[in-house]
Every structure is written in C-alpha cells, then in structure tokens.
Nucleic acid binder design. Structure first.
Lengths: 226, 226
DNA sequence: GCGTATTTCGACATCGATGTCAATGCCGAA
DNA sequence: TTCGGCATTGACATCGATGTCGAAATACGC
C-alpha cells in the first residue's frame, strides 16, 4: 500500500512532492506566489468571489492552471491570504488606543476620537473593494466570518474602554451601558463606511466625517466643556 | 412552426405546456406552491442559500424533482419569492410615519420614535434567519441587492424627514445635515439589529432598546424639555 | 555542463447540481 | 365512466469548474 519504489518511475505523486518540498521556497517561488496573489485580487475585485475562477486568475498571471495549485489548495485559500493582509490594516487602524496615556489630556478626547475615526474611514476607503468582498465571503466561509467578528470585537472593545474611562472622569453618564453603547457605535461607523465606500453611496467627505464625529459624541452624551 | 396537432402525439414540449397552462392555477396547484415555499424556507434557513439544493427542498416536501420546476424556474426564484414576503413586513415596519399628523404632539416625538424602533427590532427578530440570508444573497444576486438598498432608502428617508421636521420646530440644530445623519442612524439601528439577532450577539432586551433610543436622540442633539 | 532539487505545464478525470422531457397519474365536469 | 386539462414523476443529458498527475523545463550548486 505505502510508497514502493518502482525503479524507473519518477517517484511519488506530484502532490506528495509538492508537500514534501514545501511550496515556493526559492526566490523564484516567492515571486510566483506574489504574482498569483496580485492576479487573484484583481479577478476577485472584478468578478466577485463566487464568479471568480481559478482559470481567470492563472490566465491573468500568464501561467498554467497547475501552477496555481503549487501555491494554494483552492480559491478559498488565496482569498483568505488576501483578506489577511487587509485585515491587518483594519485591525491596526482600530487598535490605536483612544484613551491616551495622559490623564491630563481630558478634553482632547474629542480630537483623538476624530482622528481615530478618520483613520478607520480612510483605511476602509483604501480597501473598499476587498472589504466589500469580505462581507460577502464572511457569510460563506466560517473562517472569514470569524475574522469579521474579530474586527468588530476589536472595535467594540476599544470604544467601550473609552466610554468607561469617560464615565470614570464624570464626563459621561454612568447609567449608559458601555458595552451596548459601544456595539451601537461600532455598528454606526462600520455600516456607514460600508454603504459609503463599498456600496458607493455618495457623501461629502468632510461633512460626513464631521457629522459622524458629532453624532458619536452626542450619542454617549459627551458634551465638551469647551 | 406554431402548434399543429399531430393526432396521437402529446403535443408540444412539457415546458411549453407549463407556460401555456400557467403554473399552479388550480386549488391543488396553489397548495403545492405553498408547500414548496415552506420547504424551501426551512432548507434555506438550515443550510444557507448556497448549500441549499433543490433536491433537499423537494425531498422535504415529499415530491419529485420535476415538480419543483413546475412552480419555479430556479432556486434563486424561490428565494426571491420568500424574501418578498419578509421584505413587505420590514418595509411596513419602517414606513409608519414617525412625524405624526398632529403638530401639537411636539414632545411625544421621543415616544413615537421609541415605538417605531421597537417595532423594527421586533420584525427583525421575528425574521432574523431570512434577513441574515438576505444579507448573504444581496451580495450575490442584483435583484435581492436592490431590495436591500430599498429597505435602507425607506429607512433613511423616514429618519431624515423626522430630523427636518424637528429642525423646523427648533428642536434640533439646523447645522446637522439631515441626510447624512439619517444615513448614520439607519446604519446604527440596522447593523445593531443584524449583529444582535442575525449573528446572535447577546444583549439584554430592554437595556438594548432603551440604550439605542437614548443614543439615537443624543446623536442628533435632541434634548426633550421634559 | 552534470545532476539534483524545484517549479511549471496542460490535458484529463471527476463530480455534483441543474434543468429537461416523455410518460403517467389525478380529478372534476359532462 | 369517460374525457381532457392539469400536475407529477424520475431517469437522464448537460455543463463547467475543480483539482490531479506524469512529464518536461528551469535553476543552480558543484
């Protein structure tokens, strides 16, 4: 049953060789992998996840069908690889502490919030095509679904930490439930960005950002003693 | 070319007969259609849109494969029929005028808003499985995508009309851009409902509704002279 | 310029869901 | 009970994307 070695034959299946040698280890391999990733991204953005075919990806890359499978097990696996890159950017943008170390900077909170939301929106705009696809694939593949949930958790946690801090300083009513409020604000900002950038609803750049900022603060009842 | 009548042969293709006779006109036919719709809904909710197979639907209904195609052209068409029913409920919930006729009821606005949001959330909860699927299919089928956009437009328009009315009465700052603010609030409520009911994030019923209400009002800077 | 490690090639087998159709079954009206 | 419109049946053809594999090509150390 297990691998005998008939003298002349090339030995083992191609698949076995592939996993044995690792895939794309050499410089050449790394370039090929990058090329395939770039092509895949183009095809996905053009055709959507479901309509994208491996055949299109390899054609765009100018390589043969089989080469694709040297580097990825399936269409889904390339997509995951691509979304990982984007995800990192998003999480980075969301991870920047809103609180700030200095207790002194009490009333700069509004400014820091504004900056943070702007950064998030800019990252969303930059990657809008992939983030739109992520919404699609999140409903199809559990692993990508997990990633979307992770984004949201990061966002909600950052916001609820801020709210608690403001409540500690007496700047926000303690009656407000921080977790629920954070969930609602994350929904507001995230879904607004989705319709604005991914679905193409037109808004005036500055007006939208300023309005979002102002509503965010009003929603938690934060009123700066300016 | 057109329908001659060779004596013995059954005449025309089955497909032609189907479109000729209409599908499910009789009482019997209407029952069959309803049965298939119910089975389809169960299968969709259990397996998701993509993994649902016509074979599963007919098996659950206890009829043969071909019968399905007497009533629907494809899996997509059944889904559209199902989502139409749900969509009607959602639009109804969103269509109830927030303004109210009476100019007198100035300060009941908050109460009416609360009622309206609660109604929306209840409809969402009731149909959460299909609405979750709608989010999935909206990214796949343009027609269902249109329907989702329509929901949103109804929601946004209702809210922005309210905001304008409140601005007219001097209860909300005229500086606030009604359309942008309405888009953000619709995003907040709609996406919160999605994560709450469709994705199963746990929230305390009463706390969530009250918090959403309070934030909604705070976001537009409405402060009741209570 | 030889040999081995690594990558590429592309024709082909596979696969499962979809939609079709000719034949048969059902049912109410005459 | 018989007739004809209407509905059901289920085996089958179709189809296109996926992933495989044996063999050829390329790189590169020696």
């Amino acid at each position: 049953m297990a691998g005998k070695t008939p003298s002349a034959t090339p030995e083992g299946t191609a698949k076995a060789r592939r996993s044995q040698y690792g895939r794309g280890v050499s410089e050449r391999g790394r370039r090929m992998r990058a090329l395939l990733l770039a092509s895949a991204r183009q095809v996905f953005e053009r055709d959507g996840y479901l309509d994208a075919r491996v055949a299109d990806i390899v054609q765009l890359a100018g390589v043969s069908h089989g080469t694709f499978y040297t580097y990825f097990d399936s269409k889904l696996e390339v997509f995951r690889a691509l979304i990982n890159e984007v995800s990192e950017e998003v999480v980075d943008a969301l991870t920047v502490p809103l609180g700030g170390d200095s207790d002194t900077s009490t009333s700069d909170f509004a400014a820091r919030l504004d900056l943070s939301n702007r950064r998030f929106l800019d990252v969303y705009r930059k990657n809008h095509a992939m983030l739109r696809l992520m919404e699609q694939v999140a409903t199809i593949d559990p692993q990508v679904g997990e990633q979307r949930v992770f984004h949201r958790r990061v966002h909600v946690e950052r916001i609820s930490a801020s709210i608690r801090k403001l409540q500690g300083r007496g700047l926000v009513d303690r009656d407000l439930d921080a977790r629920t409020a954070a969930a609602a604000l994350a929904a507001m900002v995230g879904n607004f960005a989705y319709y604005w950038f991914a679905m193409g609803e037109p808004f005036d750049e500055e007006l939208a950002k300023a309005t979002l900022h102002r509503m965010w603060l009003g929603a938690i009842g934060y009123h700066d003693a300016r």
